[in-house]
Amino acid sequence: MSFPIVRHRRLRQSAGIRNMVRETVLNIEDLVQPIFVTYGTGVKTEISSMPGVFHFSLDTLKEEVDEIAALGIPAVLLFGIPESKDSVGTSGFVDNGIVQEATRLIKEWYPDLLVIADTCLCEFTDHGHCGMVHTFERDGHVHGDVMNDESLELLARTAVSQAKAGADIIAPSNMMDGFVQAIRTALDEEGFQHIPIMSYSVKYASAFYGPFREAADSAPQFGDRKTYQMDPANVREALREAESDVLEGADMLMVKPALAYLDIVRLLRDQFDLPLVAYNVSGEYSMVKAAANQGWINEQAIVMEMLTGMKRAGADIIITYFSKDAARWIRNR
């Protein structure tokens, strides 16, 4: 049958009907709000390239967490900016590290708010890479090789220290080969068999991370991350990366970035039955904010369409700097 018997507009003629037949719904429970914590006192400093996103010291953190909890957002993703850095990222796995201290405070204030700990070394190393580096000079320039196997022990130590501090979920973002297995083994050996791993399974070497590198002070001091993060041109490689993480014990899979990689989100949704996370990254956030500040777009409409598209592609969970705004808009819809 076809027109005039079939009329697709019948199901679009009123808000009530459109709501009734809507296939994809974005909920507050789908959202995760990233937070950047740092040392000092009285710090609430806006990140210049990410309007509305701030660095918080531990004494100002509660204001942000209160707002997140009041909005009903179920989880936060913690990033830390340490007082000092070294070649192996020691500040990332010490018991009194900034992420560990922030975790303890948040779990004291809101025991039911999920704390997801980003497990990487780039914020804590003086070279800005996500693992141990062998450096050498050539032609008057510093070069370096990121050492895979030697980095795994440090990443595992970081995960264990975060779990001991009270993190509910470990989210390793380093893209070293074997990182899920190393972290799963270390967590289990320390009695944290119950702590799930949200793996950054498919993380591309993307230009969309630019503002984050200012926020986390994590830009590489030499070279780039293309030897361990994925080539944006590759699709089949994403399946190999995700399958490895599944076999090594990942509990959730992530695609990062989200907006330019919705085909990858759908690919993983069709191939694997684990919960799937999409990371709406800093560059995606900042582009929308910049255009909205110029009055060129309707920010609320754009953000809600973008996040709904990520859910439609197959994401169960969305990490986004828009979480607080989206939660307010969802409440009022």
Score class of each variant (00 low, 15 high):
Phe3Ser: 15
Ile5Thr: 15
Val6Pro: 08
Ser14Cys: 09
Glu23Ser: 14
Thr24Phe: 12
Thr24Ser: 10
Leu31Gly: 00
Ile35Met: 08
Phe36Tyr: 13
Phe36Ile: 10
Thr38Trp: 03
Tyr39Asp: 13
Gly42Ala: 08
Ile47Met: 09
Thr60Val: 06
Ala75Ser: 13
Pro82Trp: 07
Gly92Leu: 07
Val99Glu: 05
Gln100Gly: 01
Ala102Val: 00
Ile106Gln: 02
Tyr110Asp: 06
Tyr110Met: 08
Glu123Gly: 10
Phe136Tyr: 15
Arg138Gly: 15
Val142Trp: 10
Thr158Asp: 15
Gln162Lys: 13
Ala171Cys: 12
Ala182Ser: 12
Ile183Phe: 12
Leu187Gln: 05
Glu189Asp: 15
Ile195Gln: 06
Ile197Pro: 09
Met198Gly: 06
Met198Asn: 14
Ser201Tyr: 02
Tyr204His: 00
Tyr204Arg: 01
Ala205Ile: 04
Ala207Gln: 03
Phe212Gln: 02
Ala219Lys: 07
Ala219Met: 08
Asp224His: 00
Thr227Lys: 11
Tyr228Phe: 11
Gln229Gly: 03
Glu237Asp: 14
Asp245Phe: 02
Asp245Gln: 10
Val255Tyr: 06
Pro257Tyr: 00
Leu267Ile: 09
Gln271Cys: 13
Leu276Ser: 09
Leu276His: 06
Asn280Lys: 03
Glu284Thr: 01
Glu284Gln: 04
Tyr285Met: 05
Val288Ala: 05
Ala291Lys: 02
Ala291Pro: 01
Trp296Thr: 13
Trp296Leu: 14
Val303Phe: 01
Met306Gly: 01
Met306Ile: 12
Gly309Asn: 11
Gly314Pro: 07
Ile318Ser: 05
Phe322Val: 02
Ala327Gln: 00
Arg331Ser: 15
Asn332Glu: 15
